[in-house]
Design a protein around this nucleic acid. Sequence first.
DNA 1: CTTATGCATTGATGTAGATCAACAGGTAAT
DNA 2: ATTACCTGTTGATCTACATCAATGCATAAG
Lengths: 152, 152
Amino acid sequence: MNTIEIRKGEIIQRSGELNSKIYNVNTGLLRSYTIDDKGKEHIYQFAPEKWMIADLGSPEKPCQLFIDAIEDSSVTVFEKDPDISPTDKIKLTNRMKVLQNRIIMLISASALDRYLHFIETYPNIIERVPQRMIASYLGVTPEALSRVRKNL
Amino acid sequence: MNTIEIRKGEIIQRSGELNSKIYNVNTGLLRSYTIDDKGKEHIYQFAPEKWMIADLGSPEKPCQLFIDAIEDSSVTVFEKDPDISPTDKIKLTNRMKVLQNRIIMLISASALDRYLHFIETYPNIIERVPQRMIASYLGVTPEALSRVRKNL
DNA sequence: CTTATGCATTGATGTAGATCAACAGGTAAT
DNA sequence: ATTACCTGTTGATCTACATCAATGCATAAG
């Protein structure tokens, strides 16, 4: 468990690598994402201050997510430890709530509704992230998001 | 922590209710789902033997998921306890891996690919569940899934 | 047997969002 | 200042999937 500085654009985990770390963001902003066979990025998660970010696969298996910094960041690195603290437990639960909501949005809501839900859930992130990344997170194209926004 | 029997079709949790329970399936098959404003179901999770199922929102807030039994089932009921055992921790981690994969599928894969991924991940569930429920899980209509299957 | 209910399939048509392409402003590098 | 790059926007077209509606086929109920 140590703290490291990551500069904007720096990749700290690549798809296919082995990795047993969980990152806790102190300052800045990270993201995790996949790159599909057409070279297209699909963002899985944003992690601003106080959020955890990791590929949750088994430590001995190659992970499927890239993680990099959208802003210069300071993160604390943990091992994927079977022993977790009560605080981390709460975070884990919160994280799962987010996943739950997101899946529901993805299977049931239009691009517009997903966007509205997003700005409600992450009001602070919108200004810090390029629009195309939000589109990626929402599972739509940047063009589609631009058109959604045009209609307020 | 006690064990209860649930008959096929029985609803053990409704959207809007307060609920602080986590269900561990011993035998049978449960599902959780939402119903949108058009009355359409969107399945969030299937839970066969040895799986956990719950709405992970705060215990004091109304939950958003329905949970019912697709088959006669026997389930063990737990409180959403901040203290979890190492075994449960592993289950929780597995659960999050599933969520991760599912989100990636939803934001990046076609109906066909999602279906292929599904039968790979849950080969045993396909035969036990009506096709329209799988469609719901995949976030497509039954008609669309039927057409996907027609092309092998 | 007859009727009813639920599921899968098929066809016709509609539409949200993808794709492709061009263009405009902003910022960084030379 | 000039070039290059990146992001967002807008338009034209395409397509995957939704929607609506009808049909067949089971199993269950009278």
